[in-house]
Amino acid sequence: MKEEERIIKNTIKRTKEYDRTLSPYACKTSECQKLRKEENEHEEFDIRWPFEEDIDRILYCKSYQRYTDKTQALSFFQSAHISKRSIHVQWVSRIARQIGKGLNLNLDLIEAAALGHDLGHTPYGHVGERALNEKLQEAGFGYFCHNANSVRNILYLERNGKGYNVSLQVLDAILCHNGEMLSKKYEPDRKKTKEQFLQEYHDCWHKENASLDLKPMTLEGCVVRISDVISYIGKDIEDAMSVGILQKEDLPEKVVKVLGDNNKSIMNKLIGDLMIHSYQKPYLRFSHEVFEALSTLLSFLGEKVHHHPVLEKENAKLSRMVKELFDVYLEELENNDQDSNIVKFKSKMIESYQNTPNPLIVSDYLSMMTDTYVLNDYESKFLPILHGEKL
């Protein structure tokens, strides 16, 4: 037997052994489904397990690299310690792996989905997301939500439109991760098929608020979804305190009594309570007391932080900036302006992408941008360039 064949057979054997150690409610590695046939499937020597391949494809894609200059919640504060999208996805991955390990779930699936869940997030976080959603509706195309756009990025936009063949279970967890929707109980839709997933993905673009009703097909997807909430809720509060728009004594007393008043305490309480009430269960859930405290804290965060008057005022400027760029890019596309970067972007994409509706191309282009790129491009298009005495 050739050495390569021996290694591959041992790897397959270890995959089966790993599956046997998992919870009966876990997604097994052997159940991994790809949406399309792999390129050079029988030619490449690869000892990675299927969900490990997904982790690597996400880690090395360009969308992942752009996390480093995309804001989490507070877009315009100049501080090295304000959360960025890059560190947020790492925190989600770490929290999700901790929960998954305790519940004996598939950690590779969890890690891939956690690292990829925000690949399609816009510059300036949810401000940019709302701006694109409004512009797509104005253009008569449909709707924008970052979770569906994350699937679009990795599956249809990376590698100049070729995309990456990431597993169905990972894509589904990314699509269904909506961290703004809180549930007391998270139970997967285990009967979901590839066809149902693709329909749900389509509906997110063409039916208003379709993403709010999605349920992951795996318990691992449920873990990533609640880990997103656990990751940001305490940290957004600490970030708000660090920039002076919130004080510790502002926190609701009944929340502090249950969850504590700092990120570490909030995370520990949420993770511990979830583990206790979900262990060896086909679902995830919190105790009534902890769920009520978390729900109150989430409402408090939205009202006192995300809708703080200072943030509202500055976010309006960011939204206007994104919308004005959208209009300029759309005009450049429609005029086929050969000097335009968005026209050059489209020309580099594969042939099948060329028939994409112009508003969606603008959405693709804008959503890929980092915060800094948007700001620089806005300045170049809308602000005058100062010259010396002679041109």
Rank of each mutant, 00 (worst) to 15 (best):
E3W: 05
R6K: 14
I7G: 04
I8M: 13
K9I: 08
T11N: 09
I12K: 15
T15L: 14
R20E: 15
L22I: 11
A26E: 09
S30A: 14
E31A: 13
E38T: 15
E38S: 14
H42C: 05
E52S: 06
E53I: 06
L59V: 10
Y64Q: 06
Q65C: 05
Q65R: 13
T68W: 09
D69A: 05
K70H: 04
A73K: 03
S75Y: 03
Q78C: 08
Q78K: 15
Q78W: 10
A80P: 03
H81G: 09
H81R: 12
S83V: 05
S83M: 13
R85P: 00
S86I: 08
V89F: 05
V89A: 06
Q90A: 12
W91E: 13
S93E: 09
A96T: 01
Q98G: 11
Q98Y: 04
I99P: 00
I99L: 02
L107D: 02
L107Q: 10
L109I: 05
H121L: 03
G125V: 00
H126V: 09
A139D: 14
G142S: 02
G142Q: 03
C145R: 07
N149W: 05
S150Y: 03
R152C: 04
R152E: 05
G163R: 01
L168M: 08
L168I: 02
D172L: 05
A173K: 04
C176A: 15
H177A: 14
L182G: 10
Y186T: 08
E187W: 04
R190A: 13
K191N: 15
T193K: 07
E195V: 01
Q196M: 09
F197Y: 09
F197W: 00
L198N: 01
E200I: 01
Y201A: 00
Y201I: 02
H202K: 14
H206N: 14
H206F: 14
E208D: 08
N209D: 04
N209K: 08
N209A: 06
K215F: 07
P216H: 14
T218C: 02
T218I: 01
C222H: 07
I226G: 03
S227W: 01
V229L: 10
I230V: 14
I233T: 05
K235L: 04
I237E: 00
D239R: 01
A240N: 01
A240S: 08
M241S: 07
V243W: 02
L246P: 10
K248W: 04
E253Q: 13
E253G: 02
K269V: 15
L270C: 12
D273F: 03
L274M: 07
H277I: 06
S278V: 05
S278N: 09
Y279D: 08
Q280L: 09
R285P: 00
R285V: 02
F291R: 00
L294F: 06
L294C: 07
L298A: 13
L301M: 06
G302M: 11
E303V: 12
H308Y: 08
P309L: 12
P309T: 14
K313W: 07
N315T: 11
A316Q: 08
R320V: 08
R320K: 12
M321K: 02
L330P: 06
L330I: 11
E331G: 00
S340T: 10
I342E: 06
K346V: 11
Y353F: 15
Y353R: 02
Q354S: 14
Q354C: 10
T356F: 04
P359E: 15
L360E: 13
M368F: 15
V374G: 03
Y378V: 01
I385N: 04
L386Q: 04
H387D: 12
E389T: 08
